[in-house]
Amino acid sequence: MRPSLLTSFFALVLCVSASAMDDYKLGPLSQENPSVPKGKVIAMTPIADSKVFPGTTRDWWIYVPAQYTPEKPANLMVFQDGHDYVKTTGNWRVPVVFDNLIASGDMPVTIGVFINPGHNGSYKPENAWRVSNRGKEYNTLGNAYTRFLLEEVLPQVQKDYKLTENPEGWAIGGASSGAICAFTVAWERPDKFRKVFSTIGSYVDLAGGHAYPYLIRVHERKPIRIYLQDGENDLDNPYGNWPLANKMMYAALTYMKYDVKFELGDGQHNSKHGGAIFPEAMKWLWGDARK
Rank of each mutant, 00 (worst) to 15 (best):
S4Y: 11
S4V: 13
L5C: 03
L6M: 13
L6C: 08
T7L: 13
A11M: 12
A11L: 15
V13R: 10
L14D: 09
D22I: 04
D22F: 05
Y24T: 07
L26Y: 06
G27L: 02
G27K: 01
G27Y: 02
G27N: 07
E32R: 14
N33M: 06
P34L: 02
P37R: 01
G39W: 02
V41Q: 03
I42Q: 10
M44S: 01
M44V: 07
K51D: 10
K51E: 15
V52Y: 08
V52Q: 07
P54E: 09
T56E: 14
T57V: 13
T57C: 02
W60D: 04
V64E: 01
P65T: 09
Y68V: 03
K72W: 03
N75S: 15
N75L: 01
M77L: 14
V78W: 06
D84I: 01
D84T: 10
V86C: 02
V86K: 00
K87Q: 15
T88L: 01
T89C: 02
T89V: 10
G90L: 11
G90N: 08
R93Y: 07
F98D: 00
L101P: 07
A103I: 06
A103Y: 13
S104W: 08
S104G: 01
G105K: 07
M107N: 02
M107L: 15
V109N: 00
G112S: 04
G112M: 02
V113F: 02
F114R: 04
F114D: 10
F114C: 03
G121F: 08
Y123Q: 13
R130H: 14
R130K: 15
R134A: 09
G135I: 05
G135E: 13
Y138A: 00
G142H: 07
N143H: 08
N143L: 01
A144G: 00
Y145L: 12
T146S: 10
L149C: 09
V153R: 03
V153F: 05
L154C: 11
L154F: 05
L154R: 07
P155C: 11
P155K: 08
Q156W: 06
Q158M: 15
K159T: 15
E168N: 15
A171Q: 11
A175K: 06
S177E: 11
S177H: 10
A186I: 04
E188N: 14
R189M: 05
D191S: 12
K195N: 03
S198Q: 09
G201C: 12
G201D: 08
S202Y: 04
Y203P: 03
Y203M: 13
V204Y: 05
D205P: 09
L206Q: 12
A207M: 12
G209S: 14
P213D: 04
Y214Q: 13
V218D: 05
H219L: 02
R221Y: 10
R221E: 13
I224L: 01
Q229F: 01
D230L: 07
G231S: 06
L235I: 13
L235V: 13
P238G: 01
Y239P: 01
G240C: 08
T254N: 14
T254Q: 15
Y255E: 15
K257I: 03
K261D: 05
E263S: 13
G265L: 09
G265D: 12
D266K: 04
G267F: 01
Q268A: 12
N270A: 07
N270H: 08
I277W: 05
M282Y: 09
L285T: 00
G287R: 09
D288K: 14
D288H: 13
A289D: 14
R290G: 03
R290P: 05
